[in-house]
Simulated assay, not measured.
Amino acid sequence: MDQTLVDWPAFLAARQELGADFIRILGYFREDGTKSVAAIEEAMRAKNATALILPAHTLKGESHQFGAEPLSVLAEQIEAVARRCVETHEAPDEVLQQVVQLRPTFEATLALLERECNPLVERRAAFGKKPVVNNQGFGRI
């Protein structure tokens, strides 16, 4: 797993805290995140700093909740610059690089989070123990 995209202890803490609601809330993150990324890209194309703020703010908070810190930081940078641009009446051109990085970072992060939640994926061993793997296969003697 890519340790740089997800803070796994934070992810596991969120999973434990949310309990049975975790998978449903991760689904909301997928839906909301997809919409937020698209809204940010559209606002950037339109050079509309005001329209960047809310989706970046939403993505920042939701990403942080799941331990997706690099994604949260990108969204936070976009939001901060957009707020400043609104105050100074400037176009948000300086966050173009962050906006370009946003979609691939979101997609890679979401893939990791969803893979971790897939019940068919072999889990990592806890506390340094080797995972038990059944190599016999289904129906073999």
Results as ranks from 00 to 15, higher is better:
Arg140Gln: 14
Val132Gln: 08
Pro92Arg: 05
Ala80Gly: 14
Arg83Lys: 15
Lys47Met: 12
Glu69Pro: 01
Glu87Val: 09
Gln16Val: 04
Gln16Cys: 11
Gly27Val: 06
Leu52His: 03
Ala68Ser: 07
Pro9Cys: 05
Val37Cys: 02
Thr34Glu: 11
Ser36His: 06
Pro55Arg: 04
Phe11Ala: 05
Ile23Ser: 13
Gly139Lys: 08
Asp21Ser: 12
Ser72Ala: 14
Glu114Leu: 14
Phe11Tyr: 13
Gly27Ile: 00
Ala14Arg: 08
His89Ile: 10
Thr88Lys: 07
Glu62Leu: 13
Ala126Trp: 10
Ile141Ser: 10
Leu120Asn: 10
Lys60Gln: 10
Leu112Cys: 12
Phe29Met: 05
Thr88Arg: 10
Ser36Asp: 09
Phe138Pro: 05
Ala75Leu: 09
Pro131Arg: 03
Thr50Cys: 02
Thr109Arg: 07
Arg123Ile: 03
Ala108Gly: 02
Glu116Pro: 06
Ile40Phe: 03
Pro70His: 01
Phe127Thr: 08
Ala39Asn: 02
Val121Thr: 15
Phe11Glu: 01
Leu52Pro: 04
Ile141Arg: 02
Ala111Ile: 05
Gln97Pro: 02
Ala91Tyr: 08
His89Gly: 13
His57Thr: 03
Phe66Gly: 01
Tyr28Cys: 10
His64Asn: 15
Val99Thr: 04
Val37Asp: 00
Thr4Ile: 03
Ala20Cys: 07
Pro55Lys: 02
Leu59Pro: 06
Ala56Ile: 12
Ala125Cys: 12
Ala14Ser: 11
Glu94Val: 04
Arg123His: 05
Ile23Asp: 12
Lys130Gln: 15
Lys35Gly: 12
Leu52Cys: 04
Glu87Ala: 13
Val133Glu: 04
Leu120Tyr: 07
Val121Met: 12
Thr50Asp: 14
Asp93Phe: 11
Leu113Asp: 10
Trp8Tyr: 14
Ala68Met: 08
Gly33Arg: 02
Ala43Met: 11
Lys47Pro: 00
Ile25Tyr: 02
Leu12Asn: 14
Ala111Asp: 13
Ser72Phe: 09
Ala43Pro: 00
Leu52Tyr: 09
Leu26Asn: 08
Val121Asn: 13
Gly19Cys: 05
Gly61Arg: 02
Asp7Ala: 04
His64Gln: 15
Thr4Pro: 01
Phe138Asn: 06
Lys129Cys: 10
Phe106His: 07
Gly128Gln: 06
Ala10Cys: 09
Pro92His: 09
Arg140Ile: 01
Pro119Arg: 08
Leu5Gly: 09
Lys35Ser: 11
Ala20Asp: 15
Leu102His: 01
Pro119Lys: 01
Leu102Ser: 04
Gln98His: 11
Asn118Asp: 15
Leu52Thr: 06
Glu94Lys: 06
Leu74Cys: 05
Thr105Val: 10
Leu112Gln: 12
